[in-house]
Simulated assay, not measured.
Amino acid sequence: MADKLSPEVALRIGLAARALPDTDPKRLMTVLVSALGLPITPTKLGRLKVAKLKAAANEELAEIDNEHLKAALNLLKGIGVNMEASEESLPQTQAYAEGDMPGSIRIACASNHDTRIDGHFGSCARFLVYQVSDSEVRLIDIRSAGQTPDEEDKNIYRAGLIEDCQLLYTVSIGGPAAAKVVRAGLHPVKLPNGGEASELMEELKAVIGTNPPPWLAKVMGVDAEERIRFRQDEEEFA
């Protein structure tokens, strides 16, 4: 059956199987053939629902909880799957737990290549997610933008991928998209010339550790009184 799969579909199935407990691609393939028939195509996978996945092949996957099944289904639909870059070509992330870096903020960087900020919000391949404090920079996650589900607004979907961040660094973002990003709780920063993300994060680290401008102080959660002090300090030393 494998010779009937396109490389894209084979990748989706492999990643989806990895997202399911005690499931290898062969087991998942059996379920998909039962649910969809052959050939298995991106169009068929795009129409698949959790209920059908759970019922197929005599309920082979019925004991797996819905959260795992939803995650696998998203991968089967191509959400979070990037055909252009393998996992090996992407930079390594660093472990992070909440509270590891007191006073830090989280930044999403729109990227298409390696660790460069070179993507537009609405079309970038992935978001590099950095945690930055006044003393440390960590790349804590890489989130593929993937393919937007048919029923969702693209900009809302992408904003949702990074809604735990406080800043968005991007080469470009349109007005309507920026409004949706702001509603998700992020402050968008346009960098038309892009740049190496790690270098820009080091610059941000230095600003956090010295005298952040009021807009950044607000993002960092500094109270209004302290933000006024920052503004006064800027005027004094201008």
Rank of each mutant, 00 (worst) to 15 (best):
D3R: 04
L5F: 02
L5Q: 00
E8I: 01
E8F: 01
V9E: 00
L11M: 09
A16M: 03
A16Q: 01
R18K: 11
D22H: 09
L28R: 01
L28T: 00
T30H: 13
L32D: 00
S34C: 10
A35M: 13
A35F: 06
L36C: 10
P39E: 02
P39H: 01
L45F: 02
V50L: 07
K52T: 15
K54D: 03
K54A: 03
K54E: 04
A56F: 05
A57T: 04
E59T: 04
E60G: 01
A62M: 10
A62G: 04
D65L: 02
K70R: 15
L73Y: 01
L73F: 00
V81C: 10
N82G: 04
N82R: 14
A85I: 12
E87G: 03
E88F: 07
S89D: 10
P91Y: 10
T93Q: 03
Q94E: 15
Q94I: 05
A97N: 08
G99V: 11
D100F: 08
P102M: 13
P102N: 14
G103W: 05
I105H: 06
R116M: 11
G119K: 05
C124N: 12
C124V: 15
A125H: 13
V129S: 06
Q131R: 15
L139I: 13
D141W: 06
Q147R: 13
D150S: 10
E152D: 11
E152I: 06
K154D: 12
K154F: 03
R158Y: 08
A159M: 10
E163C: 06
C165P: 08
C165L: 11
C165N: 04
A177D: 06
G185T: 03
G185K: 03
L186T: 05
L186Q: 12
H187E: 11
P188T: 09
V189K: 04
V189M: 08
K190T: 07
L191W: 06
E199R: 07
E202R: 11
E203Y: 11
I208R: 08
I208H: 05
P212R: 08
L216P: 13
M220N: 09
M220A: 12
G221V: 13
G221H: 15
E226H: 12
Q232C: 12
Q232M: 15
E236N: 07
E236A: 14
A238R: 14
